[in-house]
Design a binder for these strands. Structure first.
Lengths: 225, 225
DNA sequence: TTAATTAATAATGTCGACAATTTTAGAGGG
DNA sequence: CCCTCTAAAATTGTCGACATTATTAATTAA
Protein backbone atom coordinates (compact mmCIF):
# COMPACT_ATOMS: atom_id res chain seq x y z
CA UNK A 1 0.00 0.00 0.00
CA UNK A 2 2.78 2.42 0.81
CA UNK A 3 5.47 3.30 -1.65
CA UNK A 4 8.96 3.73 -0.33
CA UNK A 5 8.76 7.49 -0.71
CA UNK A 6 5.73 7.76 1.59
CA UNK A 7 6.87 5.34 4.28
CA UNK A 8 6.15 6.66 7.75
CA UNK A 9 9.29 8.05 9.34
CA UNK A 10 8.35 10.47 12.08
CA UNK A 11 6.25 9.60 15.11
CA UNK A 12 3.65 12.03 13.79
CA UNK A 13 3.43 9.88 10.65
CA UNK A 14 2.87 6.70 12.60
CA UNK A 15 0.45 8.29 15.04
CA UNK A 16 -1.51 9.78 12.17
CA UNK A 17 -1.76 6.38 10.49
CA UNK A 18 -2.81 4.70 13.75
CA UNK A 19 -5.54 7.20 14.49
CA UNK A 20 -6.73 7.18 10.90
CA UNK A 21 -7.00 3.43 10.95
CA UNK A 22 -8.92 3.53 14.23
CA UNK A 23 -11.34 6.05 12.76
CA UNK A 24 -11.87 4.09 9.55
CA UNK A 25 -12.36 0.84 11.47
CA UNK A 26 -14.75 2.48 13.89
CA UNK A 27 -12.57 1.94 16.97
CA UNK A 28 -12.94 5.67 17.40
CA UNK A 29 -16.65 5.98 16.75
CA UNK A 30 -18.06 8.26 14.07
CA UNK A 31 -19.26 11.60 15.39
CA UNK A 32 -17.28 11.42 18.63
CA UNK A 33 -15.10 14.22 19.90
CA UNK A 34 -11.34 13.96 19.67
CA UNK A 35 -9.72 15.16 22.89
CA UNK A 36 -6.10 16.11 22.34
CA UNK A 37 -5.01 15.26 25.88
CA UNK A 38 -6.89 11.97 25.77
CA UNK A 39 -5.34 10.95 22.46
CA UNK A 40 -1.98 12.10 23.79
CA UNK A 41 -2.06 9.59 26.64
CA UNK A 42 -3.73 6.83 24.60
CA UNK A 43 -1.13 6.90 21.83
CA UNK A 44 1.77 7.80 24.12
CA UNK A 45 2.92 10.94 22.33
CA UNK A 46 2.93 14.65 23.02
CA UNK A 47 0.08 16.95 22.13
CA UNK A 48 2.17 18.51 19.38
CA UNK A 49 2.24 15.17 17.59
CA UNK A 50 -1.50 14.74 18.11
CA UNK A 51 -2.18 18.18 16.68
CA UNK A 52 -0.04 17.38 13.66
CA UNK A 53 -2.03 14.18 13.16
CA UNK A 54 -5.33 16.00 13.57
CA UNK A 55 -4.33 18.43 10.86
CA UNK A 56 -3.71 15.59 8.43
CA UNK A 57 -6.92 13.84 9.41
CA UNK A 58 -8.76 17.03 8.54
CA UNK A 59 -7.07 17.09 5.14
CA UNK A 60 -8.39 13.54 4.68
CA UNK A 61 -11.93 14.73 5.38
CA UNK A 62 -12.19 12.32 8.31
CA UNK A 63 -12.63 14.95 11.01
CA UNK A 64 -13.95 18.49 11.35
CA UNK A 65 -12.31 21.20 13.40
CA UNK A 66 -13.54 24.36 15.03
CA UNK A 67 -11.25 26.98 16.49
CA UNK A 68 -10.97 26.87 20.27
CA UNK A 69 -13.47 24.03 20.42
CA UNK A 70 -11.83 20.98 18.95
CA UNK A 71 -12.12 18.20 16.43
CA UNK A 72 -14.90 15.69 15.82
CA UNK A 73 -14.97 12.56 13.73
CA UNK A 74 -17.28 13.01 10.75
CA UNK A 75 -20.72 11.44 11.03
CA UNK A 76 -21.83 8.92 8.45
CA UNK A 77 -25.14 9.74 6.83
CA UNK A 78 -27.03 8.86 3.66
CA UNK A 79 -26.54 12.44 2.47
CA UNK A 80 -22.82 12.32 3.13
CA UNK A 81 -22.53 9.04 1.28
CA UNK A 82 -24.45 10.39 -1.67
CA UNK A 83 -22.29 13.51 -1.77
CA UNK A 84 -19.12 11.47 -1.59
CA UNK A 85 -20.11 9.18 -4.40
CA UNK A 86 -21.10 12.09 -6.59
CA UNK A 87 -17.55 13.34 -6.19
CA UNK A 88 -16.14 9.90 -6.88
CA UNK A 89 -18.31 9.57 -9.98
CA UNK A 90 -16.99 12.86 -11.24
CA UNK A 91 -13.31 12.37 -10.44
CA UNK A 92 -12.98 8.68 -11.21
CA UNK A 93 -14.93 9.18 -14.42
CA UNK A 94 -12.28 11.69 -15.41
CA UNK A 95 -9.58 9.28 -14.22
CA UNK A 96 -10.96 6.57 -16.50
CA UNK A 97 -11.02 9.00 -19.41
CA UNK A 98 -7.42 9.97 -18.78
CA UNK A 99 -6.41 6.35 -18.24
CA UNK A 100 -7.76 5.50 -21.68
CA UNK A 101 -5.53 8.26 -22.98
CA UNK A 102 -2.40 7.82 -20.91
CA UNK A 103 -2.04 4.24 -19.70
CA UNK A 104 0.78 2.30 -21.31
CA UNK A 105 0.01 -0.94 -23.13
CA UNK A 106 1.91 -2.78 -20.41
CA UNK A 107 -0.28 -1.27 -17.71
CA UNK A 108 -3.39 -2.31 -19.58
CA UNK A 109 -2.10 -5.87 -19.92
CA UNK A 110 -1.36 -5.94 -16.21
CA UNK A 111 -4.82 -4.60 -15.45
CA UNK A 112 -6.33 -7.41 -17.51
CA UNK A 113 -4.31 -9.94 -15.56
CA UNK A 114 -5.61 -8.46 -12.32
CA UNK A 115 -9.15 -8.90 -13.59
CA UNK A 116 -8.47 -12.54 -14.52
CA UNK A 117 -7.07 -13.34 -11.12
CA UNK A 118 -10.13 -11.76 -9.57
CA UNK A 119 -12.34 -13.91 -11.73
CA UNK A 120 -10.58 -17.05 -10.46
CA UNK A 121 -11.02 -15.97 -6.90
CA UNK A 122 -14.68 -15.15 -7.39
CA UNK A 123 -15.20 -18.61 -8.91
CA UNK A 124 -13.68 -20.35 -5.90
CA UNK A 125 -15.95 -18.33 -3.69
CA UNK A 126 -13.37 -16.17 -2.02
CA UNK A 127 -14.59 -13.00 -0.45
CA UNK A 128 -11.45 -11.30 -1.62
CA UNK A 129 -12.88 -9.38 -4.48
CA UNK A 130 -15.14 -6.74 -3.08
CA UNK A 131 -12.80 -5.87 -0.25
CA UNK A 132 -9.33 -5.27 -1.57
CA UNK A 133 -9.89 -6.24 -5.17
CA UNK A 134 -12.31 -3.50 -6.06
CA UNK A 135 -10.13 -0.89 -4.43
CA UNK A 136 -7.13 -2.25 -6.29
CA UNK A 137 -8.94 -2.00 -9.60
CA UNK A 138 -9.97 1.59 -9.01
CA UNK A 139 -6.53 2.47 -7.71
CA UNK A 140 -4.82 1.24 -10.86
CA UNK A 141 -7.05 3.33 -13.07
CA UNK A 142 -6.48 6.37 -10.90
CA UNK A 143 -2.74 5.85 -11.22
CA UNK A 144 -3.16 5.24 -14.93
CA UNK A 145 -4.61 8.72 -15.37
CA UNK A 146 -1.07 10.04 -14.83
CA UNK A 147 -2.60 13.19 -13.34
CA UNK A 148 -0.60 13.72 -10.15
CA UNK A 149 -3.02 16.13 -8.56
CA UNK A 150 -5.95 13.86 -9.33
CA UNK A 151 -4.08 10.90 -7.88
CA UNK A 152 -3.34 12.86 -4.73
CA UNK A 153 -6.90 14.15 -4.44
CA UNK A 154 -8.33 10.64 -4.66
CA UNK A 155 -5.82 8.49 -2.80
CA UNK A 156 -4.78 10.95 -0.10
CA UNK A 157 -7.95 12.97 -0.11
CA UNK A 158 -11.24 11.14 -0.11
CA UNK A 159 -10.14 7.52 -0.44
CA UNK A 160 -10.11 6.83 3.29
CA UNK A 161 -13.54 8.34 3.79
CA UNK A 162 -14.79 5.92 1.15
CA UNK A 163 -13.11 3.09 3.05
CA UNK A 164 -14.72 4.30 6.27
CA UNK A 165 -18.19 4.05 4.76
CA UNK A 166 -17.50 0.62 3.32
CA UNK A 167 -15.94 -0.81 6.45
CA UNK A 168 -18.50 0.51 8.89
CA UNK A 169 -21.46 -0.43 6.74
CA UNK A 170 -20.02 -3.87 6.04
CA UNK A 171 -19.60 -4.23 2.33
CA UNK A 172 -20.04 -7.78 1.13
CA UNK A 173 -22.98 -8.20 -1.11
CA UNK A 174 -24.37 -9.67 -4.28
CA UNK A 175 -22.58 -7.08 -6.36
CA UNK A 176 -19.41 -9.13 -6.60
CA UNK A 177 -20.22 -10.76 -9.92
CA UNK A 178 -22.00 -7.84 -11.55
CA UNK A 179 -19.13 -5.53 -10.55
CA UNK A 180 -16.83 -7.98 -12.29
CA UNK A 181 -18.64 -7.50 -15.57
CA UNK A 182 -18.59 -3.75 -15.15
CA UNK A 183 -14.86 -3.81 -14.51
CA UNK A 184 -14.35 -5.94 -17.59
CA UNK A 185 -16.21 -3.49 -19.79
CA UNK A 186 -14.28 -0.54 -18.42
CA UNK A 187 -10.98 -2.25 -19.15
CA UNK A 188 -12.17 -3.06 -22.65
CA UNK A 189 -13.01 0.58 -23.29
CA UNK A 190 -9.57 1.59 -22.02
CA UNK A 191 -7.95 -1.02 -24.25
CA UNK A 192 -9.74 0.49 -27.24
CA UNK A 193 -8.56 3.94 -26.11
CA UNK A 194 -12.20 5.00 -26.06
CA UNK A 195 -12.05 7.87 -23.59
CA UNK A 196 -15.69 8.77 -23.84
CA UNK A 197 -16.93 5.24 -23.18
CA UNK A 198 -14.43 4.62 -20.40
CA UNK A 199 -15.68 7.67 -18.56
CA UNK A 200 -19.35 6.82 -19.04
CA UNK A 201 -18.89 3.23 -17.88
CA UNK A 202 -16.90 4.25 -14.83
CA UNK A 203 -19.51 6.81 -13.84
CA UNK A 204 -22.28 4.24 -14.14
CA UNK A 205 -20.24 1.68 -12.24
CA UNK A 206 -19.81 4.06 -9.33
CA UNK A 207 -23.42 5.13 -9.45
CA UNK A 208 -24.54 1.48 -9.24
CA UNK A 209 -22.18 1.06 -6.33
CA UNK A 210 -23.68 4.11 -4.65
CA UNK A 211 -27.19 2.75 -5.07
CA UNK A 212 -26.11 -0.59 -3.66
CA UNK A 213 -24.54 0.83 -0.54
CA UNK A 214 -27.35 3.36 -0.09
CA UNK A 215 -29.90 0.55 -0.22
CA UNK A 216 -28.00 -1.33 2.42
CA UNK A 217 -27.66 1.76 4.54
CA UNK A 218 -31.38 2.55 4.46
CA UNK A 219 -32.47 -1.04 5.06
CA UNK A 220 -30.17 -1.57 8.02
CA UNK A 221 -30.96 1.77 9.57
CA UNK A 222 -33.80 3.72 7.92
CA UNK A 223 -33.09 6.90 9.86
CA UNK A 224 -29.40 7.04 9.12
CA UNK A 225 -26.31 5.84 10.97
CA UNK B 1 -15.50 36.31 0.91
CA UNK B 2 -15.57 35.01 4.45
CA UNK B 3 -18.77 33.93 6.11
CA UNK B 4 -19.14 34.71 9.78
CA UNK B 5 -18.57 31.08 10.69
CA UNK B 6 -15.12 30.96 9.07
CA UNK B 7 -13.82 34.33 10.26
CA UNK B 8 -10.20 34.12 11.36
CA UNK B 9 -9.99 34.02 15.13
CA UNK B 10 -6.67 32.52 16.14
CA UNK B 11 -3.28 33.90 15.20
CA UNK B 12 -2.72 30.68 13.26
CA UNK B 13 -5.79 31.56 11.17
CA UNK B 14 -4.51 35.03 10.37
CA UNK B 15 -0.97 33.87 9.73
CA UNK B 16 -2.25 31.14 7.43
CA UNK B 17 -4.29 33.65 5.45
CA UNK B 18 -1.36 36.06 5.23
CA UNK B 19 1.05 33.44 3.97
CA UNK B 20 -1.50 32.00 1.59
CA UNK B 21 -2.12 35.41 0.11
CA UNK B 22 1.61 36.03 -0.28
CA UNK B 23 1.97 32.71 -2.07
CA UNK B 24 -0.97 33.32 -4.40
CA UNK B 25 0.22 36.85 -5.18
CA UNK B 26 3.76 35.65 -5.78
CA UNK B 27 5.32 37.64 -2.92
CA UNK B 28 6.64 34.29 -1.83
CA UNK B 29 7.83 33.00 -5.16
CA UNK B 30 6.66 29.72 -6.63
CA UNK B 31 9.04 26.84 -6.05
CA UNK B 32 10.89 28.51 -3.20
CA UNK B 33 11.59 26.82 0.11
CA UNK B 34 9.60 27.75 3.17
CA UNK B 35 11.89 28.04 6.18
CA UNK B 36 9.97 27.74 9.41
CA UNK B 37 12.34 29.91 11.40
CA UNK B 38 12.43 32.52 8.66
CA UNK B 39 8.64 32.68 8.41
CA UNK B 40 8.51 32.77 12.19
CA UNK B 41 10.48 36.00 12.36
CA UNK B 42 8.91 37.52 9.25
CA UNK B 43 5.32 37.09 10.47
CA UNK B 44 6.18 37.61 14.12
CA UNK B 45 4.78 34.38 15.50
CA UNK B 46 6.16 31.20 16.99
CA UNK B 47 7.16 28.18 14.95
CA UNK B 48 4.16 26.27 16.24
CA UNK B 49 1.88 28.76 14.53
CA UNK B 50 3.93 28.55 11.35
CA UNK B 51 3.73 24.77 11.37
CA UNK B 52 -0.02 24.96 11.80
CA UNK B 53 -0.22 27.32 8.84
CA UNK B 54 2.02 25.09 6.75
CA UNK B 55 -0.29 22.15 7.38
CA UNK B 56 -3.25 24.08 6.06
CA UNK B 57 -1.31 25.35 3.07
CA UNK B 58 -0.55 21.76 2.23
CA UNK B 59 -4.25 20.91 2.41
CA UNK B 60 -4.78 23.75 -0.08
CA UNK B 61 -2.29 22.17 -2.48
CA UNK B 62 -0.16 25.29 -2.40
CA UNK B 63 2.93 23.68 -0.87
CA UNK B 64 4.58 20.27 -0.72
CA UNK B 65 6.16 18.79 2.37
CA UNK B 66 8.77 16.16 2.98
CA UNK B 67 9.53 14.68 6.37
CA UNK B 68 12.65 16.10 8.00
CA UNK B 69 13.33 18.27 4.99
CA UNK B 70 10.67 20.92 4.81
CA UNK B 71 8.05 22.60 2.69
CA UNK B 72 8.27 24.14 -0.78
CA UNK B 73 5.85 26.30 -2.66
CA UNK B 74 4.45 24.42 -5.63
CA UNK B 75 5.93 25.22 -9.00
CA UNK B 76 3.71 26.45 -11.79
CA UNK B 77 4.01 24.45 -14.99
CA UNK B 78 1.99 23.77 -18.11
CA UNK B 79 1.47 20.20 -16.93
CA UNK B 80 0.32 21.31 -13.50
CA UNK B 81 -2.10 23.76 -15.06
CA UNK B 82 -3.47 21.11 -17.38
CA UNK B 83 -3.92 18.68 -14.51
CA UNK B 84 -5.64 21.28 -12.38
CA UNK B 85 -8.09 22.22 -15.10
CA UNK B 86 -8.91 18.59 -15.80
CA UNK B 87 -9.94 18.34 -12.17
CA UNK B 88 -11.91 21.56 -12.37
CA UNK B 89 -13.65 20.36 -15.53
CA UNK B 90 -14.65 17.19 -13.77
CA UNK B 91 -15.77 18.67 -10.45
CA UNK B 92 -17.36 21.87 -11.71
CA UNK B 93 -19.12 19.92 -14.43
CA UNK B 94 -20.67 17.85 -11.68
CA UNK B 95 -21.39 21.02 -9.73
CA UNK B 96 -23.29 22.45 -12.69
CA UNK B 97 -25.26 19.23 -13.03
CA UNK B 98 -26.18 19.31 -9.35
CA UNK B 99 -26.93 23.02 -9.49
CA UNK B 100 -29.47 22.37 -12.25
CA UNK B 101 -31.03 19.86 -9.90
CA UNK B 102 -30.80 21.62 -6.57
CA UNK B 103 -30.66 25.39 -6.99
CA UNK B 104 -33.76 27.22 -5.83
CA UNK B 105 -35.66 29.42 -8.26
CA UNK B 106 -34.59 32.42 -6.21
CA UNK B 107 -30.93 31.49 -6.57
CA UNK B 108 -31.34 31.16 -10.32
CA UNK B 109 -32.96 34.57 -10.52
CA UNK B 110 -30.12 36.04 -8.51
CA UNK B 111 -27.58 34.34 -10.76
CA UNK B 112 -29.25 35.89 -13.78
CA UNK B 113 -29.04 39.31 -12.14
CA UNK B 114 -25.35 38.77 -11.55
CA UNK B 115 -24.90 38.02 -15.23
CA UNK B 116 -26.80 41.15 -16.22
CA UNK B 117 -24.67 43.34 -13.97
CA UNK B 118 -21.58 41.77 -15.50
CA UNK B 119 -22.90 42.56 -18.94
CA UNK B 120 -23.28 46.23 -18.00
CA UNK B 121 -19.76 46.36 -16.67
CA UNK B 122 -18.32 44.68 -19.73
CA UNK B 123 -20.14 47.24 -21.91
CA UNK B 124 -18.62 50.16 -20.03
CA UNK B 125 -15.23 48.61 -20.49
CA UNK B 126 -14.55 47.70 -16.90
CA UNK B 127 -11.97 45.07 -16.35
CA UNK B 128 -14.06 43.79 -13.49
CA UNK B 129 -15.46 40.77 -15.18
CA UNK B 130 -12.66 38.33 -15.69
CA UNK B 131 -11.11 38.97 -12.30
CA UNK B 132 -13.72 38.72 -9.60
CA UNK B 133 -16.78 38.25 -11.76
CA UNK B 134 -15.83 34.94 -13.27
CA UNK B 135 -14.87 33.55 -9.89
CA UNK B 136 -18.15 34.78 -8.45
CA UNK B 137 -20.11 33.07 -11.20
CA UNK B 138 -18.36 29.76 -10.65
CA UNK B 139 -18.64 30.11 -6.90
CA UNK B 140 -22.40 30.53 -7.04
CA UNK B 141 -22.84 27.41 -9.10
CA UNK B 142 -20.59 25.47 -6.75
CA UNK B 143 -22.71 26.62 -3.81
CA UNK B 144 -25.83 25.83 -5.81
CA UNK B 145 -24.81 22.20 -6.05
CA UNK B 146 -25.70 21.91 -2.35
CA UNK B 147 -23.05 19.21 -2.05
CA UNK B 148 -21.11 20.22 1.07
CA UNK B 149 -18.11 18.03 0.39
CA UNK B 150 -17.90 19.23 -3.19
CA UNK B 151 -18.14 22.83 -2.02
CA UNK B 152 -15.35 22.25 0.47
CA UNK B 153 -13.19 20.43 -2.05
CA UNK B 154 -13.46 23.27 -4.54
CA UNK B 155 -13.48 26.40 -2.40
CA UNK B 156 -11.10 25.27 0.35
CA UNK B 157 -9.21 22.74 -1.72
CA UNK B 158 -8.08 23.75 -5.17
CA UNK B 159 -9.65 27.19 -5.55
CA UNK B 160 -6.59 29.07 -4.34
CA UNK B 161 -4.27 27.14 -6.61
CA UNK B 162 -6.47 28.21 -9.50
CA UNK B 163 -6.21 31.79 -8.28
CA UNK B 164 -2.44 31.44 -8.03
CA UNK B 165 -2.18 30.44 -11.68
CA UNK B 166 -4.47 33.23 -12.78
CA UNK B 167 -2.79 35.93 -10.74
CA UNK B 168 0.76 35.02 -11.59
CA UNK B 169 0.09 34.52 -15.27
CA UNK B 170 -1.91 37.76 -15.47
CA UNK B 171 -5.39 36.93 -16.63
CA UNK B 172 -6.99 39.66 -18.67
CA UNK B 173 -7.63 38.72 -22.21
CA UNK B 174 -10.03 38.68 -25.11
CA UNK B 175 -12.09 35.98 -23.46
CA UNK B 176 -14.20 38.43 -21.51
CA UNK B 177 -17.05 38.62 -24.00
CA UNK B 178 -17.01 35.01 -25.17
CA UNK B 179 -16.96 33.84 -21.56
CA UNK B 180 -20.02 35.98 -21.02
CA UNK B 181 -21.93 34.05 -23.67
CA UNK B 182 -20.80 30.75 -22.22
CA UNK B 183 -21.97 31.82 -18.79
CA UNK B 184 -25.32 32.84 -20.22
CA UNK B 185 -25.84 29.46 -21.84
CA UNK B 186 -24.94 27.63 -18.66
CA UNK B 187 -27.45 29.64 -16.66
CA UNK B 188 -30.07 28.95 -19.28
CA UNK B 189 -29.47 25.22 -19.03
CA UNK B 190 -29.76 25.45 -15.25
CA UNK B 191 -32.98 27.44 -15.59
CA UNK B 192 -34.40 24.67 -17.75
CA UNK B 193 -33.26 22.14 -15.15
CA UNK B 194 -31.31 20.40 -17.91
CA UNK B 195 -28.63 18.64 -15.86
CA UNK B 196 -26.98 16.96 -18.80
CA UNK B 197 -26.58 20.15 -20.80
CA UNK B 198 -25.48 22.19 -17.80
CA UNK B 199 -22.65 19.74 -17.15
CA UNK B 200 -21.56 19.59 -20.78
CA UNK B 201 -21.54 23.37 -21.17
CA UNK B 202 -19.62 23.88 -17.94
CA UNK B 203 -17.03 21.34 -18.97
CA UNK B 204 -16.54 23.00 -22.31
CA UNK B 205 -16.39 26.41 -20.71
CA UNK B 206 -13.58 25.30 -18.41
CA UNK B 207 -11.77 23.52 -21.21
CA UNK B 208 -11.86 26.71 -23.33
CA UNK B 209 -10.54 28.57 -20.33
CA UNK B 210 -7.73 26.04 -19.96
CA UNK B 211 -6.78 26.39 -23.61
CA UNK B 212 -6.76 30.15 -23.27
CA UNK B 213 -4.48 30.25 -20.26
CA UNK B 214 -2.27 27.49 -21.67
CA UNK B 215 -1.82 29.51 -24.86
CA UNK B 216 -0.81 32.54 -22.84
CA UNK B 217 1.54 30.48 -20.73
CA UNK B 218 3.35 28.97 -23.71
CA UNK B 219 3.58 32.25 -25.65
CA UNK B 220 5.03 34.18 -22.72
CA UNK B 221 7.42 31.45 -21.76
CA UNK B 222 7.64 28.52 -24.18
CA UNK B 223 9.68 26.39 -21.79
CA UNK B 224 7.36 26.80 -18.85
CA UNK B 225 7.25 29.19 -15.93
C1' DT C 1 42.62 17.71 -7.66
C1' DT C 2 39.04 14.82 -6.35
C1' DA C 3 36.54 11.81 -3.53
C1' DA C 4 35.17 10.17 0.84
C1' DT C 5 34.74 10.86 5.77
C1' DT C 6 33.76 13.55 9.54
C1' DA C 7 32.76 17.48 12.27
C1' DA C 8 30.03 21.65 12.56
C1' DT C 9 26.03 24.00 11.45
C1' DA C 10 21.32 24.62 10.52
C1' DA C 11 16.86 22.80 9.89
C1' DT C 12 12.76 20.11 11.20
C1' DG C 13 10.55 17.13 14.89
C1' DT C 14 9.08 16.69 19.62
C1' DC C 15 8.27 18.04 24.21
C1' DG C 16 6.42 20.32 28.55
C1' DA C 17 4.73 24.67 30.33
C1' DC C 18 2.03 28.73 30.12
C1' DA C 19 -1.84 31.69 28.01
C1' DA C 20 -6.37 32.23 26.25
C1' DT C 21 -10.76 30.39 25.50
C1' DT C 22 -14.55 27.39 26.32
C1' DT C 23 -17.20 24.50 29.16
C1' DT C 24 -18.91 23.10 33.44
C1' DA C 25 -20.49 23.72 38.32
C1' DG C 26 -22.37 26.27 41.62
C1' DA C 27 -24.41 30.29 44.00
C1' DG C 28 -27.69 33.64 44.02
C1' DG C 29 -31.89 35.99 42.72
C1' DG C 30 -36.24 36.04 40.53
C1' DC D 1 -38.18 25.65 39.51
C1' DC D 2 -35.61 28.25 36.26
C1' DC D 3 -32.66 31.72 34.74
C1' DT D 4 -28.43 34.52 35.24
C1' DC D 5 -24.14 35.51 36.71
C1' DT D 6 -19.71 33.96 38.51
C1' DA D 7 -15.92 31.13 39.47
C1' DA D 8 -13.52 26.92 38.79
C1' DA D 9 -12.14 23.33 35.83
C1' DA D 10 -10.89 21.56 31.51
C1' DT D 11 -9.60 22.24 26.69
C1' DT D 12 -7.36 24.35 22.90
C1' DG D 13 -3.82 27.83 21.37
C1' DT D 14 0.88 29.51 21.70
C1' DC D 15 5.53 29.62 23.14
C1' DG D 16 10.59 28.58 23.94
C1' DA D 17 13.79 24.79 24.64
C1' DC D 18 15.66 20.45 23.50
C1' DA D 19 16.23 16.18 20.33
C1' DT D 20 16.84 14.38 16.01
C1' DT D 21 17.74 14.59 11.35
C1' DA D 22 19.62 16.89 7.11
C1' DT D 23 22.90 19.96 5.09
C1' DT D 24 27.17 22.19 4.77
C1' DA D 25 32.20 22.77 5.58
C1' DA D 26 36.39 21.13 6.57
C1' DT D 27 39.77 17.58 6.65
C1' DT D 28 42.21 13.77 5.04
C1' DA D 29 43.55 10.20 1.92
C1' DA D 30 44.04 8.53 -2.65
Amino acid sequence: MFSAASMPVTTADKTFLSIRNDIVEGVIVAGSKLSETELSTKYGVSRAVIREAINRLEANHLIERKANIGAKVVTLSPEGLSELYQIRESLEGMAARLAARNMTDEEIVSLNELLTSHFDKVKTGERYYQEAGDLDFHYRIIIGSKNKQLISLLSNGIYHLVRMYRVQLGMAGPRVTTAYDEHKNIIQAISHRDEELAEILMRRHIDYSRQNIARKLSSVNPTGV
